[in-house]
Design a protein around this nucleic acid. Structure first.
Length: 612
RNA sequence: GGUUCGGUAGCUCAGCUGGAUAGAGCAUCAGCCUUCUAAGCUGAGGGUCAUUGGUUCGAAUCCAAUCCGAAUCACCA
């Protein structure tokens, strides 16, 4: 009958719990649950209680909110707090050193020993915070460009988000495949092809010294200019606008070209391949510069016929129905949606059908457990329909389709409109950010001894870091405002702020190459403890970011950690600490902070420089 | 009109699984570089958490209604 006590001792003393994979909140939760069980043997085993970080104005590290226990245990909060607090300290002296009760809040102080051993164990562990592989496979589809125009600011949010989410999932134990579906066919592609045919006079990216994607994009713009003029002309001659849109000669040529493409007319195919080739060359440069990469690229020209067999399957299962003209539909009105076309009367598949086909192909090919689509929130309806149709068809991967929906990027003046030339081009923005980084760096003059190639790399690191951080620091699902002035500010809640914190730590650590970590015997000062306290949360933050597919959780955390370290850095000397013991401890804090900042930024796709 | 999402400081955003006096950054103002990188640190001012009602020990957070904004509702992709 001593098993209970024995058990708790074996968990909390012998098994050196500091070093297990559990985070402090989980440890506290178990310890409190255990204490409740011991102090109130009659109580329900699954009592729920909340653990918060203790507010700075109170004494303590973590706080148990007692109100929820009051009803179940039929005692006053003060009484419960006292009894649980006594029990916690008595049973887990390694973990808890003090407590106080204010109103219904039990504030617990964690022992210095816990913090110091956490630090000693993990200060140089580059895997700190990461989870072991869990055997699950996830595909993250992102970027998804059209081959008729260059990438813009909106694509950048998509790319950074997709890349970061993939890395965060890897860090939390998933095997991740990054994929991309290239929208390389369709009427919009034919528009730039027609315009090139009519107006380019044989010009090429080489002959005009233009980047391929921009070159092709110019003809897409040209098409729209001509098209608009032709419509205006027709309307002026007394034709309705709707008819004018159909009758405009350039549009009719484009429609014809699409048909020729689908028929495989050689000249059209050749032109198509040539122009897409130009675009891909341009995209390669852009992707390389922003650090996007893919394990698998799908091309719509290969996938647009997919899904037809599924349509037959749906008809057999009576999930779809055929109308008199031969078109196939699904009725989703019972689910609060509309009737949706899945196959045209001419037998060709539509967008949604292709997507179902591609979803199947991904699943068959890679046996993935989850399929994440990074797509703008304008497609919420489409993705909802996609998943619903897959579910109604009883497809095995239906429930594993997840739309990571993100909000549009707008400018302070409103939405980006290509017509008004307010679209922020990705390449331009990257160049501008690098130039800003260069300008700031030169003004500060701290790296005058750098070689030219080192400087270029540094400007890239800082400029891209600023841009990525700026786009990732807000909750993906919310639309965001891109303020050009604010984005080139490198102070405060920015990527360069965190990079700078890292660089400063590095400059200290460079001088301590022979460092050997040792246990500390001193009590922790407030700012020392605060940094360790924040460091401890890294693993929990990664898990939170993975669970919610939200890199902004990480961005906020890294900023908070940097602030905390900077306060500590300003207040306490590290290299010239008051004692060897303190110096040793503070170097451990510095090393661990550097590791967490570096690894955390890596998960956002941002590098950190050793000097800046 | 239906559906979905949003409205928090002058601006940009956290906080939303209900908890203590709602937090950051920018901007404004006042301080801190002979000492480890001042892209830093310390402090001040700045709020009817859209509005109204409800739920309860307690609401920015949950519920309802209203107002405002956005997306979407194609034989386009």
């Amino acid at each position: 009958m001593i098993s209970n006590a024995q058990k708790s001792i074996s968990i909390f003393t012998n098994k050196d719990y500091y070093f297990c994979n559990m985070n402090i909140v989980q440890l506290i939760r178990e310890a409190v649950a255990d204490s409740i069980k011991n102090v109130y043997p009659e109580s329900d085993n699954n009592l729920d209680f909340q653990i918060n970080q203790t507010k700075p104005e109170f004494e303590g590290d973590y706080t148990i909110v007692l109100f929820s226990l009051v009803k179940a245990l039929k005692k006053s909060p003060e009484m419960i707090g006292q009894e649980i607090g006594d029990s916690l300290i008595q049973k887990n002296p390694e973990l808890f050193e003090a407590f106080n009760i204010i109103k219904g809040f039990l504030n617990l102080t964690i022992t210095d020993a816990y913090w110091k051993s956490l630090l000693l164990k993990n200060h140089n562990d580059i895997c700190f915070g990461k989870q072991a592989m869990n055997g699950k496979k996830v595909m993250v589809e992102y970027s998804s460009p059209n081959t008729n125009k260059p990438l813009h600011l909106g694509h950048l949010r998509n790319n950074f988000l997709g890349w970061s989410v993939a890395e965060i999932l890897k860090a939390s134990g998933y095997e991740v495949l990054k994929s991309c579906i290239v929208n390389d066919r369709g009427i919009h592609i034919c528009k730039s092809m027609i315009a090139w045919q009519l107006y380019a006079d044989g010009a090429t990216p080489e002959s005009t010294h233009k980047k391929g994607d921009h070159f092709v994009g110019d003809y897409y713009v040209k098409f729209n200019d001509v098209y608009k003029a032709q419509i205006a002309e027709l309307v002026a001659s007394g034709i309705t606008e709707a008819d004018a849109e159909k009758q405009a000669p350039i549009m009719q040529k484009t429609q014809q070209m699409l048909q020729d493409w689908e028929a495989g007319v050689p000249e059209v195919m050749q032109l198509w391949q040539k122009m897409n080739g130009w675009v891909y060359e341009g995209f390669d440069v852009t992707y390389k510069s922003i650090g996007s990469d893919f394990d698998k690229t799908y091309y719509e020209s290969n996938t647009y016929l997919l899904g037809k067999d599924i349509v037959q399957e749906g008809l057999d299962k009576n999930v779809f129905h055929k109308k008199e003209d031969g078109s196939v539909w699904i009725d989703l009105t019972a689910d609060g949606l509309d009737e949706k076309l899945v196959l045209r009367k001419d037998g060709t598949s539509v967008y949604i059908t292709q997507d179902i086909g591609l979803a199947k192909q991904k699943y068959d090919e890679y046996k993935i457990d989850q399929s994440i689509y990074v797509i703008g929130d304008e497609q919420n309806y489409h993705m909802k329909v996609l998943k619903l149709i897959a579910q109604k068809l009883g497809l095995p991967y239906a429930d594993d389709i997840y739309h990571l929906s993100y909000g549009m990027v707008e400018l302070p003046t409103g939405k980006m409109k290509s017509r008004e030339g307010t679209v922020v081009d990705a390449d331009d923005l990257v160049a501008e950010m690098k130039a800003t980084a260069q300008q700031h760096t030169e003004t500060l003059g701290k790296v005058k001894d750098f070689e030219p190639n080192e400087l270029i790399e540094l400007y890239e690191t800082i400029g891209l870091g600023a841009m990525k951080f700026y786009l990732l620091r807000v909750d993906p699902k919310k639309k965001m405002i891109f303020n050009p002035e604010e984005s080139i500010d490198f102070h405060g809640f920015t990527g360069p702020f965190i990079q700078y914190t890292f660089a400063r730590i590095n400059s200290i650590l460079r001088k301590e190459s022979s460092f050997v970590a040792a246990p500390s015997n001193n009590t922790l000062l407030k700012l020392e403890k605060e940094v360790i306290y924040n460091l401890e949360q890294f693993g929990a933050i990664i898990m939170e970011a993975a669970k919610t597919l939200n890199p902004s959780v990480l961005a906020n955390y890294l900023f908070h950690l940097s602030k905390s370290f900077n306060s500590f850095y300003t207040e306490h000397s590290i290299g010239n600490a008051e004692s060897e013991d303190k110096k040793n401890l503070r170097i451990q804090i510095s090393m661990m902070t550097a590791n967490v900042l570096k690894n955390g930024m890596q998960l956002l796709g941002i590098n950190v420089p050793n000097r800046m």
